[in-house]
Design a protein around this nucleic acid. Structure first.
Length: 478
RNA sequence: CGGGGUGUAGCGCAGUCGGCUAGCGCGCUGCGUUUGGGACGCAGAGGUCGACGGUUCGAGUCCGCCCACCCCGACCA
C-alpha cells in the first residue's frame, strides 16, 4: 500500500473516510471501544460550527444553559415511547463514592427528561412562556457499531428545548429551527440539504412529529444531519409542565427539541472530500488560508519571510484565519500535500521568484492542479484573497448541489426504486404513507424513507398504486 | 448477539520445517546536503512477539483457554 496516499473513494469509500479522519488529525480512537478523541484540528472545526449555529440560536431568541450529565433512572421511564426508544442504549451508573446507589443514574442520551423536570418547576404562568433554552453538551448512547463522528458511544451536540403556550407556536418553533439548520448547512457548510418531515417509524422516541435535514454523501448515501422535533404535550404531561393561561385555566405546555451533533463533521467530510483529502468550506475551516514559504538559502529565507509575515498580518487584520507553515526540513511539496489532506481552502505560496516579481501564488483546494492556481500582484491581495474565499465557498455549494441533483431520480414503480437505491442514489416519488409498506421496502432494499418531499397536487404511489398527496425520498443511509 | 478476520517497535507488515543475537518499510532523534508537488546520505533510539497455561533441550512459530480490536449482519443523532 502506498502510505502517502489515501485509498480512493472509488475503491473503498468507507476506508477512505476512516483513514482521512485519522490522517487529517480530526479525531482518533480512544482506549474505550466506540468512543472518540476529538483532536485540536477537529475541535477547531466544531468550534466554528458552534459559532455559526449559536449565532443563529441567539438571533432567534434562545439562550444557553447547562443541565447535568446524570439523570435519575426513573425520569427516563416517565414518557412511554421515550423509554422504549432509549432503553437499549443507556449507560447506567450504579455506584458512587464506593457505594451502590439507591437509585441508578443514567448518563444522558438526550435531556428531555431532566429539562422537562426543571421546566415544570420554572413555568407557572403564560407570562413565563415561551422558554427557549439551548445547551451545548455531550451525550452517551450505547451503539453496537461505531464510526468516528458518524456514530460513537459519546458524542457532542447542541440540544434546544423549548416550551410554548400554544400548539401553533410550538409547531412554528419546530419549523423555524429546522430552517435554521438548513440555512446553516447550506450557507456555512456548503452542504445542500433537503428539509422535511420524517415518517412515523423514523421519528424521535416520544415526539409527535420529527423533521430532518438530509444530506447526500459522496457515495450517494444519505445522512441525517440535523433534527427538529415537535413534542406536542407528551413530555409536558409526563413531567407535569403546566401553566395558567390568561383565563386562569391550567394547561399543559407544548414543547419542542432540536439538535445537531458532531456527526455534522462527518457530513462535511463526505460531502466535499476527494481522493487528496478533506475540502473544508471557507466559512468553517479552522484555517482559511495556509501560507507556504519557499526558499533555499538563508538570504532567501529572510527576504521571503519578510513578505510572508506582511501578507499574513494583512489578512489577519481583516479576520482571515491564516496559518503560516514555518516547519523546517520539510519540502514545499510535502506541505502542499499535507494541507490538502487537511482541507485548507486556499494556499498561498511565496518564494524568491514571487518576492522579486512582487506577486504571490494562490492555489485553491476545490480545484486541484494548474487550473486552480493563479498568480496575483501583492497590491490588493487582501481583496483578492477575500474574493477567492467567497468564490470557493460558492463553488463548493454549487458542486455539491449539482452532484446531489444528478443522483436523485423520480420513480413511479417499485422496480425502478430498487434499481435507484441500489445503483444510482436517492429515489423520490409519490408515496401513500403506510408503515408496513415502508418496513417492507426497508427489508427488501435496505433503503429507508429519509423524509417527505414537497408535494403539489396528487399522484399515484409507486408502491401501493394508491392515490396520495405525499411524496417521499428513499435512500440508503448512514 | 450471530458469521468472518487480526493481534510481533508509534504506524503498516515479514518471520519458511520449532533452532541460537526477532527483522523490513514508514515515522522518530542527531549531523550534513536539500527545498516552486510527497528530498537524500550517514549515525542512532525504540520490543513483556495480546494474556495465561501446556508440549519441548529449545516456542513469535505447535496445542488449549481467555482477552482485545476490526469487518459483515440485526439496532441507531
Amino acid at each position: 500500500m502506498d502510505e502517502k496516499k489515501l485509498p480512493t473513494q472509488e475503491e473503498d469509500f468507507s476506508e477512505w473516510y476512516n483513514q482521512l479522519v485519522l490522517r487529517a488529525e480530526l479525531a482518533d480512537y480512544s482506549p474505550v471501544r466506540g468512543c472518540m478523541v476529538v483532536r485540536p484540528y477537529g475541535w477547531a472545526l466544531w468550534e466554528n460550527i458552534q459559532k455559526a449555529l449559536d449565532k443563529r440560536f441567539k438571533a432567534t431568541g434562545h439562550v444557553n444553559a447547562a443541565f447535568p450529565l446524570l439523570i435519575p433512572q426513573s425520569f427516563m421511564t416517565k414518557e412511554k415511547e421515550h423509554v422504549e426508544g432509549f432503553a437499549p442504549e443507556l449507560a447506567v451508573v450504579t455506584h458512587g463514592g464506593g457505594k451502590e446507589l439507591e437509585e441508578p443514574l443514567v448518563v444522558r442520551p438526550t435531556s428531555e427528561t431532566i429539562i422537562g423536570t426543571m421546566y415544570s418547576k420554572w413555568i407557572q404562568s403564560y407570562r413565563d412562556l415561551p422558554v427557549l433554552i439551548n445547551q451545548w453538551a455531550n451525550v452517551v448512547r450505547w451503539e453496537m457499531r461505531t464510526k468516528l463522528f458518524l456514530r460513537t458511544l459519546e458524542f457532542y451536540w447542541q440540544e434546544g428545548h423549548t416550551a410554548h403556550a400554544t400548539e401553533q407556536e410550538a409547531v412554528e418553533e419546530t419549523e423555524r429551527m429546522l430552517n435554521v439548520y438548513a440555512d446553516f448547512a447550506i450557507n456555512e457548510a456548503a452542504v445542500p440539504v433537503l428539509a422535511g418531515q420524517k415518517s412515523e417509524s423514523e421519528k424521535f422516541a416520544g415526539a409527535k412529529a420529527t423533521y430532518s435535514i438530509e444530506a447526500m454523501m459522496g457515495d450517494t448515501k444519505a445522512l441525517q444531519a440535523g433534527t427538529s422535533h415537535f413534542l406536542g404535550q407528551n413530555f409536558a404531561e409526563a413531567f407535569d409542565i403546566k401553566f395558567l393561561d390568561e383565563n386562569n385555566q391550567l394547561q399543559y405546555c407544548w414543547t419542542t427539541s432540536w439538535g445537531v451533533s458532531t456527526r455534522f463533521i462527518g457530513a462535511i467530510i463526505m460531502t466535499h472530500g476527494d481522493d487528496q483529502g478533506l475540502i473544508l468550506p471557507p466559512n468553517l475551516a479552522p484555517y482559511q488560508v495556509v501560507i507556504v514559504p519557499i526558499y533555499r538559502k538563508d538570504e532567501e529565507k529572510a527576504a521571503v519571510m519578510e513578505v510572508v509575515d506582511r501578507v499574513a498580518s494583512g489578512l489577519e487584520a481583516v479576520d482571515v484565519r491564516v496559518k503560516v507553515d514555518e516547519r523546517d526540513g520539510l519540502t514545499p511539496g510535502f506541505k502542499f500535500n499535507d494541507w490538502e489532506m487537511k482541507g485548507v481552502p486556499l494556499r498561498i505560496e511565496i518564494g524568491p521568484k514571487d518576492v522579486e516579481k512582487g506577486s504571490i501564488a494562490l492555489a485553491r483546494r476545490d480545484i486541484l492542479g494548474k487550473s486552480g492556481k493563479s498568480f496575483i500582484p501583492l497590491e490588493g491581495y487582501v481583496q483578492a484573497v477575500g474574493d477567492m474565499l467567497d468564490e470557493i465557498q460558492a463553488n463548493m455549494l454549487a458542486k455539491a448541489t449539482k452532484f446531489r441533483d444528478e443522483h436523485i431520480f423520480e420513480v413511479t414503480d417499485y422496480e425502478s426504486l430498487k434499481d435507484v437505491v441500489e445503483n444510482k442514489g436517492w429515489a423520490v416519488g409519490w408515496w401513500f404513507d403506510d408503515a408496513e409498506n415502508e418496513a417492507k421496502i426497508k427489508e427488501d432494499t435496505r433503503a429507508t424513507l429519509r423524509n417527505f418531499a414537497p408535494a403539489e397536487g396528487e399522484g399515484i404511489c409507486f408502491y401501493s398504486g394508491k392515490k396520495t398527496n405525499k411524496r417521499a425520498y428513499f435512500a440508503k443511509g448512514y
